[in-house]
Measured scan of single mutants.
Amino acid sequence: STVKVRLGHLEVTLHNVSEEDVRELRELWKNGADEEDLRRWLEEWKK
């Protein structure tokens, strides 16, 4: 499914993403990950 995730002022649209992935991303964000960390996660996730 396609999910729009809003993290601060960063809005990311993920395609074919699982609930688990979204949860993981939100956890990262809650734990103080900055945009760099999130971008890195997204790069990994896209592979």
Rank of each mutant, 00 (worst) to 15 (best):
K4Y: 06
E20M: 08
L14H: 00
E20Q: 13
V3I: 13
H9P: 08
E11N: 08
W41K: 02
E36P: 06
E35I: 11
S1T: 14
K30G: 07
S1R: 12
W45Q: 05
D21G: 10
L10F: 13
V5A: 01
N31Q: 11
D21E: 08
S1N: 14
E36D: 13
R6W: 15
L7A: 02
E44M: 07
T2H: 06
E19I: 10
S1P: 04
E24R: 12
E27V: 06
D21Q: 10
G32C: 03
D21Y: 09
W29I: 15
E27S: 10
V12P: 00
R40G: 07
E19S: 09
G32W: 03
L28F: 07
V5N: 01
L14V: 05
W41N: 00
N31G: 10
D21K: 13
T13Q: 04
G32K: 06
S18T: 11
V22G: 02
R40P: 01
W41G: 00
V3G: 01
E11F: 09
K46Y: 15
E43M: 10
G8M: 02
S18N: 09
L10I: 14
D34T: 15
R23I: 11
R6H: 15
R26D: 10
L42S: 01
V3T: 03
K30Y: 11
D37K: 13
V3P: 00
E35W: 08
R6D: 05
G32E: 05
R39T: 08
V22F: 11
D34L: 10
L25M: 04
G32Y: 05
K30N: 15
V3E: 02
K46R: 14
E36T: 11
L42F: 12
E24G: 09
E24F: 09
H15K: 04
N31E: 08
T13D: 03
R6Y: 14
E27I: 07
E43N: 08
E44W: 06
E36N: 13
E19V: 10
A33F: 07
V3A: 02
H15I: 09
V12D: 01
V17H: 01
G8E: 05
V22E: 10
T2P: 04
V3F: 04
W29P: 00
V17T: 02
K4S: 12
S18W: 02
L14G: 00
L10V: 12
K30L: 13
N16A: 04
G32A: 05
T2I: 10
K47H: 11
H9Q: 13
H15E: 10
D34E: 11
E43G: 03
S18C: 02
E36Y: 08
T2Y: 07
T13K: 04
K30T: 11
L14Q: 00
H9N: 15
E20G: 09
K46V: 14
V17G: 04
S1L: 15
L10P: 00
K4A: 06
S1G: 10
N31T: 11
V12A: 03
R39M: 13
S1E: 09
R26P: 00
W45C: 02
E11R: 04
L28Q: 03
V5Y: 02
V12W: 10
V12C: 05
W29E: 14
G8P: 05
E43S: 06
E36L: 09
D34F: 05
G8A: 03
E24K: 12
L28G: 01
D37N: 08
V5D: 01
N31D: 08
V12T: 03
S18L: 07
T13G: 01
L10S: 06
E35P: 06
N31F: 05
L25H: 00
D37Y: 08
T2N: 04
T2E: 06
R39I: 12
H15L: 08
S1F: 15
R23K: 12
R23A: 13
R26A: 11
W41C: 02
R6E: 09
W41F: 04
W41A: 02
L14Y: 01
L42P: 00
E36V: 10
D21R: 04
E11C: 08
S18Q: 07
K30Q: 13
L28K: 04
H9T: 14
E20L: 06
N31W: 05
K4C: 15
S18E: 04
N16G: 11
E35L: 10
L28W: 07
A33Y: 06
L14P: 00
L14C: 03
L7D: 02
D34S: 15
R23V: 08
G32R: 04
E11Y: 11
L42G: 00
G32N: 11
R26L: 13
R39L: 12
E36S: 12
L28H: 03
R23C: 04
L10H: 11
E27K: 10
V12G: 00
T2F: 08
T13P: 01
G8Q: 03
A33N: 05
H9M: 12
L42K: 01
W41E: 00
R26W: 13
T13A: 03
V17Q: 01
R26V: 15
R26N: 13
G8Y: 03
W41P: 00
R26F: 13
K4N: 09
L25I: 08
K4Q: 10
N16C: 04
R6N: 13
W45G: 02
E24W: 06
V22Y: 13
K30V: 12
V12N: 01
D37S: 14
E36Q: 12
G8K: 03
E44H: 10
R39N: 11
V17A: 12
L28I: 10
E20H: 12
V3C: 06
R6Q: 15
L14S: 00
E44F: 06
K4F: 06
V5E: 01
L25G: 00
E19P: 14
D21T: 08
E44T: 08
W45R: 06
V22T: 04
H15Q: 07
E35T: 09
R26M: 14
G8C: 03
R39V: 11
W45K: 07
L25D: 00
H9F: 10
R23F: 10
K30H: 12
R26C: 08
D37M: 14
E19N: 09
G8L: 03
K47W: 08
S1K: 13
E44L: 08
K47Q: 12
S1I: 15
V12Y: 14
V5M: 10
L38K: 02
R6V: 15
R40V: 10
V22C: 06
V22L: 15
V17M: 06
E27N: 11
L14A: 01
L25W: 02
A33K: 04
L38W: 04
E20V: 09
G8H: 04
L14W: 01
L28N: 02
D37T: 15
W29F: 15
W29Q: 15
W41Q: 01
D37I: 13
K30M: 13
E27Q: 08
E36M: 11
L38I: 14
D34A: 12
R23Y: 11
